[in-house]
Design a protein around this nucleic acid. Structure first.
Length: 478
RNA sequence: GCGGGAGUAGCUCAGUCGGUAGAGCGACAGUCUUCCAAACUGUAGGUCGCGGGUUCGAAUCUCGUCUCCCGCUCCA
């Protein structure tokens, strides 16, 4: 199957079978925002639960929190988001290339003698500080700065791009809206940093230790695209691991390996993963890499592992005026811990599992044409674990099926259906990725056995009614 | 944001020269009682993405707009 069709087919399948719908679809949709339907939300929740369990319950030195989406505006000053991600941009009308204004001018300055460059950059900094966009455009035009692609100086006006969404807090409109401005967090990490001491003290945590959190984040991307890959509202699963300064390198390597193990535990083939080490590092990092998955549109980042140094805690210390140090009893000294972050996109993980699971199969024989679409989810994350199907709706079969439902329901999500031919019901479950179907037939009443049908190879085996629950539970272990 | 493509039933699509909309699948209710879709009967479902224009008349021509996909661009 051609990969460009694969993504389209997955999108269509997700809609048709209740996984993912476009937001506000009856109003023509809202760009790059999606809703999870009845099966999509189960899938997403199962992934989130598995991550949470792996990163908290299974770790002696990691605890979870749930920080608010709204935070004090100064948080984003301290984190660098206000200054680093509201860059003025300019487009060349001929080449249609877009540039960050500072990069464009800096690039030009490098071609100038040192003294000229210095005065140009100084002028630029002054204008940037005043948000004087008209002045910046004039500066570019006066210096006859050209586009590297078109070679022309035919520029649009300078426009500001803000990564963060903002809103106003408080009931009464202020004369100065800036006073009431709060942001929707662009990452969950800062909620962990500002609670670092609260958790450390109340949890009596000893370094090295981690704080985990899942939650929504919001970014006003210039171009949000690729189905649920890059959305304006998305969910992150992050863990910040606080370590003794100087040990960050070994912990970075530790988490790199640990997180890749987690990915592989989902049964995804190793050749679909690769590490991408960052060469150009962000302002806060001393090492960074991505775990990339081979999506239908190519290798793309699913998770990032970043050695964030003491950048965040140090800045929060400075902006808040509160000490954010840890007393290390072994070393008998205070220090600001270093941080190694693991940050995975939940929606991207959903998309990864969909891409991995989606398969169109041709089951034709000489006699007849046949095909099916199957989602080969690991049982742990499948929205429905077990479909319970009476072969017919007579002869007491539905009653036995209902009893089995009652037995299994408390342990995992089940689905009951008695309509249509058994083959049709199997195929419907394949399409939503249900790993097991149990069929109650005439023999069940005689000897308390049922057939259990396996999704991936479509084989069946006869088992006792009483063993069904444990078979499913066992398959759900990873 | 720029360029290209697309938008007709839940899904995939057809719709000729401008003359008021069709198929297959699916869904629902029955029949059949059968271990792997497409057997039979019946039913529901569409302001042809939205808005303006041309026309006696627009799914069709035209302009605008929204959304999706691809490429570029950007990206923690």
């Amino acid at each position: 199957m051609a990969n460009d069709n694969k993504l389209q087919n997955i999108i269509a399948h997700c809609k048709e079978y209740g996984f993912i719908f476009q937001s506000s679809e009856i109003y023509d949709g809202l760009s790059a925002v999606y809703d999870y339907g009845q099966y999509g939300s189960e899938l997403k929740k199962n992934i989130r639960d598995y991550w949470w369990k792996s990163m908290t319950q299974m770790q002696d030195n990691i605890v979870g929190i749930d920080a608010a989406i709204f935070m004090h505006p100064t948080v984003w000053k301290a984190s660098g988001h206000v200054d680093n991600f509201s860059d003025p941009m300019i487009d060349n009308k001929d080449s249609k290339k877009r540039y960050r204004v500072d990069h464009l001018i800096e690039g030009y300055a490098e071609t100038l003698p040192e003294a000229d460059a210095k005065s140009l950059l100084q002028k630029m900094d002054e204008l940037l500080a005043k948000d004087d966009f008209a002045g910046l455009k004039t500066l570019i035009e006066d210096n006859k700065i050209k586009c590297a692609v078109s070679g022309t100086a035919n520029w649009t006006d300078v426009r500001q791009f803000n990564l963060m969404f903002s809103t106003e807090m408080g009931a009464v409109a202020s004369d100065n809206p800036e006073e009431n401005k709060v942001y929707l967090r662009p990452e969950t990490a800062q909620g962990i940093f500002v609670n670092f001491l609260n958790v450390q003290k109340t949890g009596r945590m000893k370094i090295p230790f981690g704080i985990a959190q899942t939650g929504k984040a919001f970014r006003n991307e210039i171009v949000a695209r690729g189905f649920i890959f890059r959305m304006r509202e998305f969910e992150q699963m992050e863990m910040q691991f606080f370590v003794r300064p100087g040990t960050q390198k070994e912990w970075y390597e530790h988490w790199k390996e640990a997180r890749m193990k987690w990915h592989l535990s989902l049964g995804i083939s190793p050749e679909r993963y690769r590490f991408h080490d960052h060469v150009k590092l962000a302002h806060y990092a001393d090492a960074a890499c991505d775990i990339e998955y081979d999506f239908p549109m190519g290798f793309k980042e699913v998770e990032g592992i970043h050695s964030r140094t003491d950048f965040d805690l140090k800045n929060h210390q400075q902006y808040s005026g509160k000490k954010l140090t840890y007393f290390d009893t072994e070393l008998n000294q205070h220090y600001v811990p270093y941080v190694v972050e693991t940050s995975i996109g939940l929606d991207r993980t959903v998309m990864m599992l969909l891409s991995e699971a989606y398969e169109e199969q041709d089951l034709s024989t000489d006699e007849k044409q046949d095909s099916r679409v199957v989602l080969k989810f690991p049982p742990l994350v499948a929205p429905i674990k077990l479909a319970i199907l009476p072969l017919t709706k007579k002869d007491g079969m539905p009653e036995i099926a209902r009893q089995l439902m009652d037995e299994c329901k408390p342990y995992f999500k089940c689905f009951y259906e008695e309509k249509d031919s058994i083959g049709k019901r199997y195929r419907r479950q394949d399409a939503i990725g249900t790993p097991f179907c149990v069929t109650i037939d005439g023999q069940t009443k005689e000897d308390n056995t049922v057939t259990i049908r396996h999704r991936d190879d479509m084989t069946q085996e006869r088992v006792t009614l009483s063993s069904v629950k444990d078979i499913v539970l066992k398959a759900m272990q990873v």
